[in-house]
Structure formats: structure tokens, C-alpha cells
């Protein structure tokens, strides 16, 4: 299925099946973007980084932003935040126009845009939390308990009075994230929040991030190359390619939209001759033989599946197991963008 086919088969981003609390239906969208466009350069050298992007994110949603390098993810986030001035389009955060009333809008927002270099390395961890809470509009003493909890949640309590410059890269990343959560911002943008973290730290961060978001009712937009993070943390995924949104749905719906109706069959007596006959009539996507058992994956619909089992029955093939094959988010991403896993690419220039 191509992105166009997917778009035709699904509904518009504004009325997707994202789970929304009923009592929030009357609230303004946490983030509402209409017709956002941005071109860099001029004439022949011009590059369209964001092309007529519209989206609506409800309060309390956790949305993942995926796309290959140069897809326009970072420019979209920075345009929403006003750090890149768009050529066209409007952005509202909690109903406030960011271009017209930036100060009011920024009272609701914080962002981790530069990974680990997003705070002051000469200050201690706690001093950073207090400083960024203050410039975010919150008196630091009034949220001292929150800061203690953040330090505990991100395993930073023992390093609270240590200058950030003395910490490991992974810990700096956690401090950066904690400083974004230190104020009263109810909309947070996190660009690659798990970049540079080891597996254990990444799992801790995912778990705590999800918990904090739920407990505080935050709206979060997470851009990441790590699809496991997106799949684990996000309610909804927006996939961008060439500056446009090519998919916007829940992880579950995206998987269902790309259901390939593939079946995985294992058999102890499926010989080469039978496999050849199956290949002649069906789309065999994978076939392996190990320790006397042959496993075959066949892409077909339910009618085709009945034909396949009839063929195997004719040849007295015993089926040890039959299972449907579920696509994961990475397969959906590859289908939509034509790109391999974005982690295999180089740096993202925008």
C-alpha cells in the first residue's frame, strides 16, 4: 500500500481514531496547525521543507513524529514553536496563536530541541531544574517537590548537586529532559529524547516519560528515530515524507491499515516439490527449513488461504501451526516512505 492509497483508505487527521477523553472534547486542541509551509533558499536552489502541513493534537495525547532524514520533522516542530518562521500557515497552542501572542503561548510550552546541549553544564542538575522552571514562568520553590520527584524518576537524585558537565552523556540527556518537565508547561516537544542512552536508561526513560505524561496530563510530541520508543510511548503516530504528512493515525490503526494478510505456516513434511507448487500459485515471502520443520510465509487474503490449505491437503501435508503475520511500525514506515529504518541513515540536517 502506498501513502496515497493509505490516505484514501483512512480518514483525515482531524477525525482519526485517536482515543480521546470524552470530557476534553470541548477544549481547544493542545496544538492546531493549519497549512504550515516552509521553503529554504530561493529560485532553483529552494527546498520545500514543510509542505502545507495541517494537524490537530488533542490535550493529553502523546504523538510520535516519524520520518526519514530531511522529511521535515524538525522544521515542523521548530515552525510550531516559532523558532523557524513559516512562509504560510497558522499555529495555535492551547488555542493561542503563536505568531500573534508568543509570550502567552510559550507559557504552555517547553521543548528539548538539541538533545544533551539544552541546559547549562556549569550549573548543577538541581540548579538547572530551578533555573528553567523560573524562566518557564514558575517560582522554583513552589515546585521543589516536583523537582525531587523528577530527580528520583530519572535516577538523578544522587547527582543532584553535581555540575552537569561532570555527568555521562546519557545522564546529561536525562537532565535535559527533566529540565523541560521542571516547569508548568503542558505541551512538550521532545526531539530524540533517548538518543545516546543505553538500553536500560532508554527503557527507564520511556517508562517514566509515559508515566509523567499520564499523571500530569501533558501533551507530548516526540520526534525519534527509535521506533520502539514511538511504539511504546505514543498514542498516535504522524509519519512525514518530503515535507508532507503521509500518515496520521494510532499505532494499531496504522498496523491494521497495512495488514498484508500474510500467513505463516509450519509443517514437518512440506517437501521441495510441494513448496515449488505453492510458489507457482501464491506469493511466498519467506521460506526456511530447520530441524525437519519448514516455515513458509505466504501473502494472500482469506480466500487464497483456503485455496492454499486445499492444495496442501491434496498433497497430504501436515500443518503443525498456522498464524497471521502482523506488520510492525517499521514495516509501515518502510511502506509509506520507501526508506529503510531511519536509524540506518546519517544525521538529520533539519
Amino acid at each position: 500500500m502506498t501513502s496515497d492509497q493509505y490516505a484514501a483508505a483512512t480518514r483525515s487527521p482531524t477525525d482519526t481514531d485517536v482515543e480521546r477523553p470524552a470530557d476534553r472534547s470541548a477544549e481547544p486542541a493542545a496544538i492546531a496547525v493549519e497549512g504550515l509551509s516552509k521553503r529554504f533558499g530561493s529560485d532553483d536552489d529552494a527546498v520545500t521543507a514543510v509542505d502545507d502541513v495541517s494537524l490537530r493534537i488533542e490535550p493529553g495525547s502523546v504523538v510520535g513524529l516519524l520520518g526519514p532524514n530531511g522529511a521535515g520533522k524538525t522544521t515542523t516542530i521548530k515552525s510550531i514553536l516559532g523558532m523557524v518562521l513559516p512562509d504560510a500557515g497558522t499555529v495555535r497552542i492551547q488555542g493561542i496563536d503563536v505568531a500573534e501572542n508568543p509570550r502567552q503561548a510559550y507559557a504552555h510550552v517547553d521543548a528539548m530541541l538539541e538533545g544533551a546541549r539544552n541546559d547549562y553544564w556549569r550549573l548543577t542538575v538541581r540548579e538547572n531544574l530551578r533555573y528553567f522552571a523560573t524562566i518557564g514562568g514558575v517560582a522554583p520553590d513552589s515546585v521543589a517537590d516536583r523537582h525531587d520527584r523528577l530527580l528520583d524518576q530519572f535516577d538523578l537524585a544522587a547527582k543532584a548537586d553535581e555540575p552537569v558537565r561532570n555527568l555521562s552523556r546519557g545522564m546529561k540527556q536525562k537532565v535535559s529532559l527533566a529540565s523541560v518537565l521542571a516547569s508548568d508547561a503542558d505541551v512538550v516537544f521532545l526531539d530524540e529524547p533517548t538518543l545516546g542512552l543505553d538500553v536500560e536508561s532508554s527503557l527507564t526513560l520511556r517508562r517514566e516519560l509515559r508515566r509523567i505524561v499520564e499523571e500530569r496530563g501533558l501533551t507530548a510530541v516526540i520526534s525519534s528515530h527509535d521506533m520502539d520508543v514511538i511504539e511504546a510511548v505514543c498514542d498516535r503516530v504522524i509519519i512525514m515524507n518530503d515535507g508532507r504528512i503521509v500518515a496520521d493515525d494510532t499505532v494499531t490503526n496504522l498496523r491494521q491499515g497495512f495488514e498484508t494478510s500474510a500467513f505463516r505456516l509450519t509443517s514437518p513434511d512440506l517437501d521441495a516439490d510441494t513448496l515449488s507448487a505453492v510458489r507457482q500459485r501464491f506469493d511466498v515471502t519467506d521460506a526456511t527449513a530447520r530441524e525437519g520443520t519448514t516455515t513458509v510465509e505466504v501473502a494472500t487474503d482469506s480466500d487464497g488461504f483456503y485455496d492454499l490449505t486445499a492444495l496442501l491437503r491434496e498433497r497430504d501435508v501436515t500443518l503443525a501451526s498456522v498464524a497471521t503475520v502482523e506488520p510492525d511500525l517499521e514495516e509501515v514506515f518502510v511502506e509509506l516512505t520507501g526508506e529503510r529504518d531511519p536509524r540506518h541513515n546519517g544525521g538529520d540536517p533539519r
Binding site: L81, M83, Y106, Y120, I135, G137
Partner: peptide, 19 residues
């Protein structure tokens, strides 16, 4: 600019001017 903190200051209810 190098540390990425200029953007964070601009994105606040106070703005960068008083800071």
C-alpha cells in the same frame, strides 16, 4: 546559541529581552 539555550529563553513567557 551553541548550547541550544537561546531558543529555550526565547520560548518563555518572559522572552529573551529581560534575561
Amino acid at each position: 546559541v551553541q548550547w541550544g539555550t537561546l531558543e529555550r529563553h526565547i520560548m518563555t513567557p518572559f522572552g529573551f529581552a529581560p534575561v
